[in-house]
Design a protein around this nucleic acid. Structure first.
Lengths: 193, 193, 193, 193
DNA sequence: CATGAATGAGTGTTCATTCAT
DNA sequence: GATGAATGAACACTCATTCAT
């Protein structure tokens, strides 16, 4: 296996196990065992457990950022962009719940892991937030969305998606995720207007 | 100090330190020191660290449930109830950020701490969710809100509030919390309609 | 309850719980609860956990010593004395297994509890050993027993009784204890001859 | 040092310190220090303190079982087998008092450590008991010993040896252990006849 | 690159003992 | 005498990280 591939497999394993068990309950040994390598070898690719957690969040946010970037690149109304993003988000959540849940459970919650004195941990999600900002700004420009503080919009979009993600993780949703697509997109757009 | 009062002071200290440092990085010794008692004495009031975390979440959700319960009891339109709740929520967040953040950071994130095999950890927040459900149901009855899956509404209300709470915790909000009151209430009502 | 009676009830409770759970796994709190008094009050009667254990062994050995003393006082052959002692010992074991087992499990095993630098822990059983010595000496005088080192005789008598006590505690003996009376007395006498 | 050898050295250190100080007064740290390794490394070889105690007892009983097995294999009268066993037992006790005393002090006394719900702790000594049973059965077959309940015979053999072991541990025996060989063998054979 | 034995600081929890009431 | 809250030292066990092979 190439160096890059092995690094990636370590990342994916971490992501999965961190999400399932939490950051602190996950041991390096478990991650190593999950992909059949030795504990010491994990350290050849990542210098610490913390760095694994950070690399994981960058990995996830870049996936989300890419999705949103491609949508933003299209020449369609902002409301449609929201609908597209909700759709792709739900598909992603369906396919890789561990990645999305990692974002909401591990990253947003374990502040002490991701934050350094000199650097807001928030910055790890920068690429995604940039795209979100673009989406909102475009919508405001086209008068589709109300011209309000970006943070309100941010709270609406990521809050509502976070809420549904949480419920999905709790396994309380009776219907298939895709069923919620339309209503969620509608709710988000309304909240932004 | 009465027994009940001491138990409460331990709870409040836990809440604060858990929120600041995370569940796992917080030691019983720190909690004990914070209120000037011995480690062993903490265990005279709570049988384990985990039980402290659980008692904390019950404490917070009951506070929130009480606030919402009183609002629900009033004879006003559902939209006004939402506005009232947002106002009181923001005041509460301003005054006791550790309690609200505890709810979003510690409870929602450290699944492995709160969940037992036989019992959804979700149930610890039951009293609050019940009130939220009442608010939404009433609004649907009065045609103020759209008749949609409660989970969507749940995601909207707690998601948007969670989002702003997160941003507040990140200290990125430039304006005073109260400034966001109107816009947030508006966004939530819109999202429910 | 008189002071003496309460002291005794504490002693008996200790004996029972020490035997059932071992010295270290028994807490003062358990002993106190067992007789319905407070932890602090136990310390009004015994200055330490260790002193409780020591008082217990003195209590038991004095019971055994009394039994043997009365037998020694009779004008019967030594072999009959052995038979009598075995009989009464088995009856005692039947009735108060916790006392006898205390002697063999707790006292003989937890050396570190009973021994002080200046004093052999062995001395706590002195009264009983004295009587045993008398029994053997008398038997040698009457030519019933061989004139051998007392320690050999001691090993035979208390060893064989200890062995059957152990097996009784293990609950592997199918027959009633009394059934073993004759054979045990016979074995002991033979071993002494 | 090979893995197996290190495991063994941990075992021997445990045996010695458990015997000297008792199970509960012995700390893993002491065991580790005694052989110059770290606390954590002990746990690479034994998963718990309890498992160390159990492995120790298996180790000792297998030593005793082997001794007795070799004697049983010889074509000599049962009485001579007893004499051989007593001799080798005393030699072993002389050479490795910690092992034999471990058997009598730690194993027989700390029931709560060795017993599981589903399994008599007694079973840890199975291999030795099997050999003892063979010795007795053979002696009965050759009419050297009386045909009595095996448990009586068990109490006699292990009781008498346990008694002398106890006295040896108390350091009350004036003569050399070997001096008691003949008398002990004689006493045991008599008690079995 | 890969291994996994070794390290040792760190933490939840227990419990004998004390003492103010 | 009686209570039981308070103390704090002690200890089993964990696990991120290192490094010799």
């Amino acid at each position: 296996m190439s160096k890059e591939k092995k690094k990636n497999s370590i990342l994916l394993a971490s992501l999965e196990i961190f999400t399932k068990q939490g950051f602190y309950k996950t041991t390096i040994s478990q991650i190593a065992k999950h992909i059949g390598i030795s504990v010491g070898n994990v350290y050849n690719y990542f210098p610490s457990k913390e760095s694994l957690a950070k690399a994981s969040i960058v990995f996830v946010t870049e996936k989300l950022a890419t999705i949103l970037h491609n949508i933003n690149a299209q020449d369609i109304p902002a409301k449609e962009k929201v609908a597209c993003f909700v759709e792709e988000y739900l598909e992603f959540l369906q396919k890789h719940p561990e990645m999305i849940e990692y974002f909401f459970r591990i990253y947003l919650a374990n502040r002490e892991v991701f934050y350094q004195s000199d650097d807001s941990g928030f910055s790890l999600a920068e690429s995604f937030i940039k795209e979100l900002e673009k989406l909102v700004t475009d919508g405001i420009a086209s008068k589709e969305f109300a011209n309000q503080d970006f943070y309100i919009s941010f709270a609406c979009i990521s809050g509502i998606l976070g809420g549904i993600t949480f419920l999905h993780g709790e396994k309380v949703l009776q219907a298939d995720l895709a069923q919620y697509k339309k209503n969620l997109a509608h709710a988000i757009c309304k909240s932004l207007s």
